[in-house]
């Protein structure tokens, strides 16, 4: 035991505060795996959901109506159902009827495991909100600016890439940050389908050690650190993207 571990063992011994992950290296590694999985989920889902948001917002400006309807239906479905229910639906509902493949255990397993389904569900959930956020940004770009772009000979696509989207992105940064923060916190529901993320691991630990208050505190602090670092990063990006003289 090092000094750090000894301190937490002493804390348990003297005050009954059982932060077992800080003095038992087996539990510590377990918690570390949970933390890694949470971060992994966060990074992948943030990136993918932003891609979904941008693509969806672009499709919404399409002149081909059925495409707009598809995006509309997608948004309605994912915005109006609870994420936990979506998670169960994907993993147990849709997951069970997926084509089966033989896995390395030699069993017939449906395609996509719990981790993949968690990523799909969370991405689509946050993506739906992102579409609306990007759309609001696009709609806020002054019409005159769009007309000026086309007067300068920009094609629809080029105007979107070089003029409309860069401006829209700056407008929707606050809303986007909000939604992505929400997404980071929502990753915790992946524990319902057995993804070994922070909350899941904490639950496994407290089920044996009965240190629910301590683990719950640790989980909250963990999320607080993750989310506040993310918010800090997003505000840095927002500042870096600021165009002098162009404020809303």
């Amino acid at each position: 035991m090092n000094v750090f571990q000894e301190f937490f063992y002493w804390l348990y011994d003297a005050y009954g505060l059982n932060f077992i992950v800080f003095y038992d290296s087996w539990e510590f590694n377990r918690y570390l795996v949970g933390l890694t999985n949470t971060l992994y989920l966060c990074v992948i889902c943030v990136v993918l959901s932003v891609v979904v948001g941008i693509a969806g917002a672009w499709l919404q400006t399409s002149r081909f109506a059925p495409l707009r309807w598809v995006v509309y239906c997608y948004i309605q479905f994912f915005r109006n159902t609870p994420p936990l229910a979506q998670m169960y639906f994907f993993y147990f509902g849709l997951g069970s009827v997926m084509p089966r493949i033989t896995n390395d255990m030699g069993l017939q397993e449906p395609m996509f495991g719990n981790f993949e389904w968690a990523i799909i569900a969370l991405t689509l959930f946050a993506g739906a909100f992102n579409v609306e956020i990007f759309r609001s940004g696009i709609e806020a770009v002054p019409k005159t600016t769009v007309e000026a772009a086309s007067a300068l000979g920009y094609s629809r696509w080029k105007a979107y890439v070089h003029i409309i989207f860069p401006l829209a992105l700056r407008i929707c940064m606050p809303g986007l940050t909000n939604n992505l923060v929400n997404l980071l916190k929502t990753t915790s529901i992946a524990y319902a389908i057995g993804v070994a993320e922070v909350l899941y691991v904490a639950n496994q630990i407290w089920a044996v050690e009965f240190n629910v208050p301590e683990m719950m505190n640790l989980v909250l602090v963990t999320y607080l650190v993750i989310v506040s670092s993310f918010v800090w990063m997003m505000s840095r990006i927002t500042k870096r993207m600021r165009i002098p003289g162009y404020n809303w």
């Binding site: 147990f92 997951g95 069970s96 089966r100 896995n103 255990m105 069993l107 017939q108 397993e109 449906p110 495991g113 719990n114 057995g194």
Partner: peptide, 13 residues
């Protein structure tokens, strides 16, 4: 019920 479903789905050995 979820553990049973997962077993039947071949999610675990």
């Amino acid at each position: 019920a979820e553990t049973e479903q997962a077993l039947m789905d071949g999610r675990c050995l």
